[in-house]
């Protein structure tokens, strides 16, 4: 298998990989610290959180939906664990389980709002959910930052093996599993079909409502994992973080990686490259001591640019199709 074919079979465009490589080279030239072992590992650590959120986001985007509550959900799940710490609990395993169940539950509610109550677009329900979770995160922690999490809770986000962050290893495993799931199982294929044509999928005997609900539920579980990683990385949980632009970073990773707001498209490999691009960008800004205000501006532009790329790509593909159909 040639290299190009390999990339294509994973579903990641060479252009995106090239963009990542070029960014790394440029940053290495501008600041040699960039390619130090510690910095690269730091990037991986940073990528983990966003890559987890982006996993669920990707599934929702493929179904032509969106989950704007992933960031708030992650913070909420972290705060649920914080609440348990405040209440004097010391069993980390129970905290982890509760967090994952809470995240999955929130995601399931998102899915049910969309498919059973027929809210017009998940944009509405998940945006509402984001605010609910923000408030809930503050309520359960009494608007206080919480630390002193048990080691078992922090392990995932903190631990490294030979300097290599465990969180990123877990993310890689999840990405491989999800890649196989999306490309080689019936449910995975159904997700793409539901995104491409919901009605045709339903009339083909696939329970499209359940497929969608599954995507949002999984998005919730991934958000909970993200919340756990964030606790390990920072040692604290902070409900105020629910308003951070975590969702936009996740969306950006997916779109840069080839997903489309119109649904039906997107791959795990592409999303990984997208998440790495975001992390490298943020890391580069820090290395070059660019203020966080400017970072926000540039990242916002990158997202707009990525959507623009998606639109242009679609226009070009449509044109190609038209020409081919003649």
């Amino acid at each position: 298998m040639t290299k190009k074919k390999f990339g294509a079979s994973l579903g990641v465009s060479l252009g995106t990989v090239a963009a990542l490589v070029v960014m790394c080279v440029v940053l290495s030239i501008m600041n040699p610290n960039f390619y130090s072992f510690n910095n690269i590992m730091g990037i991986f650590k940073q990528t983990s959180f966003n890559a987890l959120l982006a996993t669920g986001m990707l599934l929702c985007l493929i179904t032509a939906g969106i989950d704007l509550s992933v960031g708030a959900n992650a913070v909420f799940c972290a705060c649920v664990m914080g609440m348990m710490v405040k209440a004097g609990m010391t069993n980390g395993i129970i905290m982890l389980i509760v967090a994952i169940v809470a995240g999955g539950l929130v995601g399931t509610i998102n899915g049910l709002l969309l498919t059973r109550l027929h809210l017009p677009h998940p944009f509405v329900s998940t945006l509402g959910m984001k605010n609910v979770l923000w408030g809930a995160a503050l309520i359960v922690t009494g608007s206080q930052m919480v630390n002193n999490f048990p080691e078992s809770v922090q392990w995932l986000g903190k631990e490294t093996i030979g300097g290599f962050p465990v969180s990123f290893i877990v993310v890689l495993v999840i990405y491989v599993v999800m890649h196989i799931f999306l490309s080689r199982t019936a449910l995975g294929r159904s997700i793409y079909c539901a995104g491409g044509n919901m009605e045709a999928t339903r009339l083909s005997g696939i329970n499209a409502a359940n497929v969608l609900t599954f995507c949002y539920a999984l998005s919730g579980v991934m958000a909970a994992l993200g919340g756990i990683v964030s606790v390990g990385r920072s040692g604290i949980c902070n409900g105020a973080n629910a308003t951070q632009p975590y969702d936009t970073d996740a969306i950006a990773a997916c779109i840069i990686g080839g997903a489309s707001f119109n649904g039906g498209k997107g791959t795990m490999a592409g999303t990984m490259v997208g998440a790495l691009i975001i992390a490298v960008l943020r890391n580069g800004f820090t290395l070059l001591s660019i203020s966080s205000a400017v970072q926000n501006v540039v990242l916002g532009l990158v997202i707009i640019g990525a959507v623009l790329m998606d639109v242009t790509r679609q226009a070009m593909e449509a044109k190609k199709r038209r020409l081919a159909a003649k």
């Binding site: 079909c193 491409g196 044509n197 045709a200 999928t201 009339l203 039906g264």
Partner: peptide, 12 residues
Amino acid sequence: GQGLVLMQTIRT
């Protein structure tokens, strides 16, 4: 509108 997922392959 109801029979095919146009953006997918014949295979799918």
